[in-house]
Nucleic acid binder design. Structure first.
Lengths: 167, 167
DNA sequence: CTGACTGCAAACCCTTTGCAGACCG
DNA sequence: CGGTCTGCAAAGGGTTTGCAGTCAG
């Protein structure tokens, strides 16, 4: 199953504009890599994207895939699933709960809410398979990071600077 | 900030029982490692747990921390945050959407729901920091995996066998 | 043409594993 | 005491980086 090609073309168009606006070169590789992610419904990892692109363009290298993917992420044309590429984190709270995660430093906190526990998923989801748990993930910027940011740069420059590690 | 010690002691009690039931030895290391995770409100990674335990017990090694953590996970005494310890995965769908993830093979699918988009987080969460996005993650077992499982083992044995990789 | 981009290979980080000695039960 | 568990060190998988040649604009 694939994203409808009309939608894919729109996404590619958006990419071209964003690239031009950012002064980035539209290389054959970048186009193919973006096309691959943009037309996937499952959310492929770098390796899978690499293999798919490679079948059409045997010279690409895995590192270009990575570089391009993060570039697209910085351009805001795609996002990553889950907590960035961090190490596993453990949770000894067995009660049904939800998470607040700071996108800047990775701070994670539990919260409980009977209202959110009661969420009912749309019927379409049930067609995908059995449902075990439903969990809400709230992302935001924690107090501490907000304070730090305010101190460091009263007028933020570029949002693209969130590349380094977490805390 | 820490988990109240009454709660921590209860968790440890549960661990001791589970260990006994499973015939696992209650070593000093295991106890300290579990105590550390069980009393953390943030969700530490292996490295952080290691450092904390090390300060009280200078001889522990990082690999014991890992081994113990996964053992606790298998016992059902803790869970991991996010998509297991897999590689990063990318998502070119910019519309507000939610995810269904198969815990067995890692399959991920988007779904949309104006109802879920409208979720309001409890006031307590707002004290933690600014909220950027709210995203529902539904975990389950996809059709394909359910079918495979049914074929392989009509009468499932132990749930603890989900250790290997994804698809 | 020229600087940005690519491919290569080596480096890096996190996690896992094999082995011999240590310790729980 | 015996088998499990630990610590060590080295391997492993995914991701990143420095460099010299290549290509888009």
């Amino acid at each position: 199953m694939k994203v409808p090609s009309v939608e894919v073309e729109q996404r590619i168009e958006r990419f071209k504009e964003a690239a031009k606006a950012a002064g980035l070169k539209l290389t054959h590789q970048r186009l193919e890599i973006f096309r691959e992610v943009a037309s996937s419904l499952d959310h492929p990892g770098a390796e899978a994207i690499f293999r798919a692109v490679q079948s059409r363009m045997p010279t690409v290298s895995l590192d270009t895939v990575y570089r391009t993917l993060w570039m697209l992420n910085d351009l805001g044309l795609l996002t990553t699933l889950g907590q960035r590429r961090e190490a596993v984190r453990f949770d000894a709270n067995l009660a049904h709960h939800h998470h607040y995660v700071c996108v800047r430093c990775g701070l994670a906190r539990d919260f409980e809410s009977t209202e959110l526990d009661a969420i009912r998923v749309p019927g379409a989801v049930k067609k995908l398979g059995r449902v075990l748990t439903t969990h809400v993930e709230v992302r935001g910027v924690c107090e501490k990071c907000a304070a730090e940011q305010a101190r460091k740069s009263p007028a933020a420059k570029k949002t693209a600077a969130v590349k380094g590690r977490g805390a």
